[in-house]
């Protein structure tokens, strides 16, 4: 069954006791939250904690999210904060109960429709970047990547860095225009 309710409707329904609405929120936004936590450098166990913590925060804010239509962005931002707090805890060896306020424009790439935008932008790049970044996304090893692209093994690292830089330049203006 596909739930076509808007995010704000799902949030309201979950606040009113509708378990299926909560499940639909998880189904729609959970994968992106996982990606955000992983992008912060967490291993699988800590990323699971960051995602779980974010859902628990949402439970306590079901009635107080300022912009329910943007619950997706709220979830991604909160996941990132939780992930950074977990990282800081590991570094400080003490649990921190404060908040992380250093907003990072990079998070926009993973929030909202950032992934789709990113993929679309990759497809506009010239070769070898277009193929290389698609291969990077599938975690193909450097040796196999070199064979697929017909490039020397030693050039994969620098080429990847150049391609990411091109992507960065293309994405940044789109990001700031949103």
């Amino acid at each position: 069954m596909t739930d076509t309710r808007a995010p704000a409707e799902l949030l309201q329904a979950a606040a009113d006791g509708d378990r299926t609405a909560w499940a639909e929120l998880e189904s729609r936004f959970g994968p992106r939250m996982w990606a955000v936590a992983r992008a912060c450098g967490l291993d699988a166990t800590d990323a699971a904690d960051a995602v779980q913590g974010t859902w628990l925060r949402l439970l306590q804010h079901l009635h107080s999210i300022r912009d329910p239509a943007r619950v997706s962005a709220w979830l991604a931002t909160t996941t990132r904060r939780e992930a950074l707090m977990i990282r800081r805890k590991e570094q400080a060896a003490l649990p921190s109960f404060g908040t992380v306020d250093d907003a990072d424009p990079a998070s926009a790439v993973l929030e909202a429709d950032g992934s789709r935008l990113l993929w679309k932008t990759v497809s506009t790049l010239q070769e070898p970047c277009r193929t290389l970044l698609k291969l990077v996304a599938t975690d193909l090893g450097s040796r196999q990547m070199a064979m697929r692209l017909g490039l020397p093994l030693g050039s994969i690292g620098p080429t990847r860095a150049r391609c990411l830089e091109k992507l960065r330049l293309l994405i940044s203006p789109q990001e700031t225009a949103q």
Partner: peptide, 10 residues
């Protein structure tokens, strides 16, 4: 890392 995570997600 954000780029890569987004690419992997996609």
């Amino acid at each position: 890392e954000y780029f890569l995570a987004a690419l992997r997600l996609a």
